[in-house]
C-alpha cells in the first residue's frame, strides 16, 4: 500500500496548523518567524505532493514553485530577523506585546 495524495495533504495541513499555532500564541518575535517558516514549508510540501501525483504530461511547475518559494522564504527570514534585531535595539525586548509605539 502506498500513501495517497490525501495523506500528504493532511500532514501538510497539520504542519500548517502547528505553524499557525506558533505564530498566533507565542509572544516572542522569533517564535512568530519560526511559525511563518513552518507554514511556508507546509505549502512547499503541498506543491511537491501535487507535482508528484499530477496526471501523465507531468509538468514540472510544482517543483519550480517550490524552489522559488524556498528562495523567497530565505529572503523573508533574513529581513524578518534583521527587523527583530533592529527592534530589539530600540525596545530592549523581543516581546511583541511591548512593541506598541510607532515612534522610536
Amino acid at each position: 500500500m502506498t500513501p495517497t495524495l490525501q495523506a500528504f495533504l493532511i500532514v501538510s495541513a497539520g504542519l500548517f496548523s502547528i505553524g499557525l499555532l506558533a505564530a498566533l500564541s507565542r509572544r516572542h518575535a522569533i517564535f512568530i518567524l519560526i511559525g511563518i517558516e513552518m507554514m511556508l514549508a507546509a505549502a512547499n510540501l503541498n506543491f511537491i505532493a501535487f507535482w508528484h501525483f499530477a496526471p501523465p504530461p507531468h509538468p514540472s511547475t510544482g517543483v519550480m514553485i517550490a524552489i522559488f518559494s524556498i528562495a523567497i522564504s530565505a529572503a523573508e527570514a533574513a529581513v524578518g530577523l534583521a527587523m527583530v534585531i533592529a527592534v530589539y535595539r530600540h525596545y530592549r525586548t523581543t516581546n511583541v506585546d511591548q512593541f506598541n509605539q510607532l515612534k522610536g
Partner: peptide
C-alpha cells in the same frame, strides 16, 4: 537579542483554538 526568552512565558490559548 539576549537571553530574555524566560521573561515572557505568556501563551495565548486562543491561538490553540484557532489552529
Amino acid at each position: 537579542t539576549g537571553r530574555d526568552s524566560r521573561e515572557h512565558r505568556g501563551f495565548n490559548w486562543s491561538g490553540v483554538v484557532i489552529a
